[in-house]
Design a binder for these strands. Structure first.
Length: 144
DNA sequence: TCTCTGACTATAA
DNA sequence: CTTATAGCCAGAG
């Protein structure tokens, strides 16, 4: 039963990490996987979100976990079995102020704008110098 | 118990 | 740029 216990811990960690994503921003499955200490299991992160209960009475549910803010590393909403779910996620993101562009192939690309990513991009992206990296020490935050 | 699938990603060609 | 491949491992049948 230790296995199930570990699995529960993993689910818990994933949901907690997703809750850390600020409003109006997104991150990738891989990033969540790294946050929970298992950078090689981005797929399982997807499994966790798929199993995210809709019951609002549950500790983690569709209402308190911003599952919609999790997309794939390509900056696109991962297409899953049910296209309706993808569209649903796109709608949810739009509602949060995130701009989603529909590609010719029906792929829903998230417009990161300057930088809509939560903490930062993957190491590869960092090395590429694509990180905005707030210049200066001027710290300012505005939230509605 | 085995097999197949999948809300992923990095790397190679 | 696109396509193929190899890891990863939790569910569902």
């Amino acid at each position: 039963m230790a296995r199930s216990d570990e699995a529960a811990a993993f689910f818990h960690a994933v949901y907690s990490a997703v809750q850390e994503i600020p409003h109006g921003k997104v991150t990738s499955y891989g990033h969540i996987a790294k946050l929970v200490g298992t950078p090689q299991r981005p797929r399982q992160v997807g499994v966790c979100l798929k199993h995210l209960p809709s019951d609002t009475a549950a500790r983690f549910n569709h209402a308190n976990v911003p599952w919609q803010r999790v997309i794939n590393a390509k900056g696109v909403i991962s297409p899953r079995s049910q296209p309706s779910g993808t569209l649903n996620q796109a709608a949810a993101l739009e509602a949060e102020g995130v701009v989603v562009t529909a590609g010719a192939l029906g792929e829903l690309s998230v417009d990161l704008g300057e930088f809509g990513w939560f903490p930062r991009l993957l190491p590869s992206e960092e090395a590429a110098g694509l990180v905005p990296q707030d210049s200066d020490d001027d710290e300012d935050e505005d939230d509605e």
